[in-house]
């Protein structure tokens, strides 16, 4: 059993979001980059748990990005995974990203591909389904549990108001979210080991972008909070009913 975990580089969750070049580019100045939290906390850690449980032999990581992605890939390798690929393409079109990874999946033959539920910058929740769509694999989105036995997986996914459990044949792409794995942090040994794990740079395949961001915009600033004392609850309720019209 070979698992591929898709790792996106994402701005730190506390990063200040701003744009340059007439609001056409994300301003990376002063921004720290991290492993996209869903990829780290749920997809990667679940893959590691499966390997530790003897249900997988090998974990590969893949990230589509430029050379500035390497640091984030090393961080991921510090948590676990045997080796990593960086596919050399700088894009944020989910089709282009998914087509790169689908090509790697086809070449290396993974039984299971794990992604995060979404990237915290573009919030598309798309790349995993794009990979599966290109390859015609089964796909489960917003998954909160994943068990393996032989060539079959048992997966739970979020549905409106709860979850459902499914039995799915491999090969399979699963997008992971909360519930999937127990939180863990890298230890010293992992950080040392990550330095020497193979990170192979792969040239991109041809897959032109089907979409592009033409402009960014900040949401309008909040008007400022209107405060009420504990004795003014009738006034607060009146404001919610008459002004905000939400009750």
């Amino acid at each position: 059993m070979k698992i591929l975990v898709c790792i996106a580089k994402a701005p730190d969750t506390t990063a200040k979001i701003s744009f340059t070049d007439n609001d056409t580019k994300f301003n990376e100045a002063g921004v720290t980059f991290i492993i996209n939290p869903y990829d780290e906390m749920y997809a990667l850690v679940r893959a590691i748990e499966l390997k530790e449980a003897g249900l997988a032999n090998e974990i590969h990581l893949v990230s589509v990005g430029g050379a500035d992605t390497d640091a984030v890939i090393r961080k991921a390798l510090a948590l676990g995974g045997d080796s990593a690929f960086r596919i050399d393409a700088a894009t944020n079109d989910p089709y282009t990203i998914g087509a790169q990874i689908a090509d790697l999946v086809q070449k290396n033959g993974y039984d299971l591909v794990l992604t995060g539920k979404e990237s915290i910058d573009y919030n598309n929740g798309a790349v995993g389904a794009v990979i599966a769509g290109i390859l015609g694999y089964n796909y489960i989105g917003n998954a909160s549990k994943l068990e393996l036995s032989g060539a079959e997986a048992t997966v739970s996914r979020e549905i409106e108001g709860g979850e459902e459990t499914l039995a799915v044949g491999l090969p399979l792409v699963v997008a992971c979210q909360k519930g999937m794995a127990e939180p863990r942090i890298p230890n010293m040994r992992g950080i040392m080991a990550a330095r020497t794990k193979p990170l192979t740079v792969v040239p991109a395949v041809d897959a032109s972008a089907l979409s592009s961001v033409t402009r960014y915009e900040m949401p309008p600033a909040k008007q400022g909070v209107k405060l009420f004392t504990v004795d003014q609850m009738d006034d607060l309720v009146a404001a919610l009913i008459n002004d905000a019209k939400v009750l």
Binding site: N123, L210, S211, V213, Y216, E217, P219
Partner: peptide, 15 residues
């Protein structure tokens, strides 16, 4: 909406 609600993006479809 992008950046988890912190901004908006105008996405142009080229296909």
């Amino acid at each position: 909406s992008v950046f988890s609600g912190k901004a908006f993006a105008y996405v142009t479809v080229n296909a």
